[in-house]
Design a protein around this nucleic acid. Structure first.
Lengths: 459, 459
DNA sequence: AAATTTGTCTATTTACATTTC
DNA sequence: GGAAATGTAAATAGACAAATT
């Protein structure tokens, strides 16, 4: 029994281990999970210091520490020395975004599903390709990293973005998320930490959680990571790398400045840390800035998916990978996929080589621009400013909304949007913001209707 | 300093930590890795007891234990109570099989790449499909788990195998390896153990290693796991599941008996362990036995890839998944792939529904049978017996060969085969055997030539 | 600026269970 | 069948370093 009675202390969490079976540390983990599920522990709650918990439970400090470490790896909390332990701010938000559901019972402006009409040229090329004499091999195994021709097309794709490289540095993957998963699984291990923006693409969160990698929110200013923040995370949080989305950041729609790109490249080189650069939206910009990889080609893994620019159904992503990471990444992709679909890789590469890809991008940009004009008109005053070709927009909500409450409210009126809670990293309370997809509603009418419903809630 | 001098003791490993920097446990891990790489520690070597090492190094037992545990998770060794610690038997063998290399400089009989001519009907159907009015959506995102129609086709596929189920229990994946990776990543965690045959599909080894799952070789008799062996592994090795390949086992070509299938099903139910059943070859058999899943539908995840039966380029696998594992598996697949390629999933499902799949299987079986007649004739006396439709054959080598030495020797004469070392699990010395692929040589001539070269080495 | 708070990490102690002899 | 050998696992101790006050 503890010597002091804690009954009158104001402890934010009083786990009860009396009816649990050993080992103690696992019982404590279970208790924490249950209390989060039961709503007893809320996002952002500061837990008592580990020593205090140990004292209260009459167990050793290290036992508490061990339990909390496991919870941290599960993404339930984040802890830092001197500062304390806090429940993660996204523990109560959904992490799966149903994909491509047909005929949803609402106007979908949550998930990002590009406009179907722009697939036409891709389809037409597929038909031509199948008529070629050696088409049979399109249904056999493909080379695991992609053929020389496909990797050369990938290099050309990166060249459009401003990254000059060659086929040796390119690997194909089955889509952007597949590429990201392979990168994280192949180059990081359980317990490693990587820095991210304080709101970021949820896909990186689910992957990190899956393999026990911690995400650390890096200090930011005006939607960009600060130099001091990055140095801090390197020195004090021991991060192995940084995940960034420089172009049309998800969810904020921000485009990272050239200075910050160079700054991150510089630090990456000096400190030898890995940059995972998600350049999925780069070519949707009119005059895209070069990716960070262009300034630190030895440190940056740069991911370029064709899903948002050409067609999602191609399931093709090109990965720019520096020599030193090549083997690990290729091995991991081999383990996950064996190979990419030859048919789709071939279509993707050919479209780039024969110039059709450029035409498709042009069409997509045109369509998105038209839509953004409408968005700007209807939601004027609630939007984070953005270029016209940005596929998402970021809403700044009135004070009395949280992202989550707005999301619920919007769904009541038949519009799906995603509140900031889905994107948060770490334990700071989420911003009062929400992301809307400009590209997803099938028709302009659907888009307009959706926007007007949102407007009604807002004003 | 240790009190006793060990200089005269016959210790099989004398790590030297004098020039290493702390932490001790990591230094010891590094030393072991280096000594394996340098050839100082050979596969199968028994290390000194942990207590002896601790004494010799003058460190605590737990420190040694911690270091060796890490090495075990890396797949470098395996340890068991009372028995000791042994270097894994496959530490020096290659784990990546280059895939679909064009024009290899040898006759490829290592990797399994199905015959290209049988892709014709698949290609023809793809052309028809693209002409349909709603073909544009084949290039958009697909539903993550597959559409209702696709999952129904999956259920029909399993029905052919003798497993009666419905679309609710089916999930699509991007090929067999993708399905296996998702299963292991989604349902197991670092440190978990699963049982396998003492030689098995190398894909499970690389995945297990990637996420730190241990493989435990289960006692066998006549190419099948024994009941006692499974119980032993459950009770003493604490395995969470078993990975099996009942049909045309890889690499032994063995077909598991009906009794053993039922026995495994029974144990799985009684002991509540997970069975991962790789049914990739089931429909290549003439009268296939039902999969284990048919006898324990709540315990078995059954994987059915179309790669070997229809066409590898479809990158389609169907997963039969019991209710209780459905959510975890679906989430993991979503994390890895977002969705499967709509075009390929649709082709796969349609081929099954319209019966073309059956025709393709028939063609493939015919081709394999023709080839096996030739194999039987040329390598008579060195083969493990097998049904004529088996895509691989297992060679029993003369005593003076190891699998690895035969592999090297074969490559010298221009034939790639895979020695048993690539398939071994655990620390027992590998059998003197090798696997050859019947299906890979592009023409009958290539096959004959390859077989004759092997024959020459053997006799 | 120094003292205190707080989480992290390695190594150690101790108990235990199985296998081998 | 009992004793010795051997690996496993939880809990604890202690030193450390960063952050806060």
């Amino acid at each position: 029994m503890p010597i002091n009675s804690f009954e009158n202390y104001p402890m934010s969490w009083k786990p009860d281990l009396s009816n649990t079976k050993p080992p103690i540390y696992l019982a404590l983990v279970r208790q924490l999970e249950d209390d989060i599920k039961a709503g007893i522990l809320k996002p952002g709650t500061k837990l008592p210091p580990q020593r205090e918990l140990a004292d209260y439970l009459d167990i050793n400090l290290s036992t508490v520490s061990r339990a909390l470490k496991i919870c941290e790896q599960k993404g339930l909390l984040s802890a830092s020395v001197g500062n304390g332990t806090y429940i993660s701010s996204d523990v109560t938000s959904d992490k799966i975004f149903i994909c491509g559901q047909e005929n949803p019972p609402f106007i979908e402006m949550g998930g990002l599903y590009p406009h179907i009409e722009a697939n036409r040229k891709v389809k037409q090329y597929a038909e031509r390709l199948l008529k070629k004499p050696d088409a049979l091999k399109l249904f056999s195994y493909a080379e695991s990293e992609g053929t020389e021709i496909q990797r050369t097309a990938g290099a050309a794709w990166f060249r459009k973005m401003g990254l000059h490289t060659d086929s040796q540095h390119i690997i194909l993957a089955a889509g952007g998320q597949n590429a990201l998963t392979a990168t994280v699984c192949g180059l990081l291990k359980q317990g490693d930490r990587i820095g991210t923006d304080y709101v970021t693409y949820p896909g990186i969160k689910t992957i990190a959680q899956m393999i026990g990698v911690q995400l650390v929110a890096i200090q930011h200013k005006d939607f960009e990571m600060t130099e001091a923040g990055i140095y801090y995370a390197i020195q004090n949080e021991n991060i192995k790398g940084i995940y960034v989305i420089p172009d049309f950041h998800n969810p904020t729609s921000h485009i990272m400045s050239l200075e910050t790109r160079k700054m991150i490249a510089q630090i990456a080189q000096e400190e030898n840390i890995l940059i995972i650069e998600d350049a999925i939206n780069n070519l949707l910009e009119d005059n895209p800035l070069p990716p960070i990889a262009a300034f630190a080609p030895e440190q940056v893994i740069c991911l370029a998916s064709l899903s948002k620019t050409i067609a999602p159904g191609l399931r093709t992503a090109f990965i720019y990978v520096p020599e030193k990471y090549h083997c690990d990444l290729a091995t991991t992709l081999y383990n996950m996929n064996i190979s990419n679909p030859a048919l789709l890789s071939t279509i993707s590469a050919d479209l780039i080589i024969n110039g059709i890809a450029d035409e498709v991008i042009m069409e997509r940009k045109k369509e998105i621009s038209n839509r953004n004009l409408i968005v700007n008109e209807i939601l004027n005053g609630y939007l984070v400013e953005s270029k016209l070709t940005c596929p998402i927009r970021y809403l700044l909500l009135p004070d009395y909304f949280t992202g989550k409450s707005f999301e619920i409210c919007a769904l009541q009126t038949g519009v799906q949007v995603f509140g900031a809670e889905r994107f948060t990293v770490g334990n700071k309370p989420a911003d009062k913001t929400a992301r809307i997809s400009v590209i997803t509603p099938p028709t302009i009418n659907d888009l307009t209707e959706g926007l007007q419903r949102l407007k009604k809630i807002l004003s």
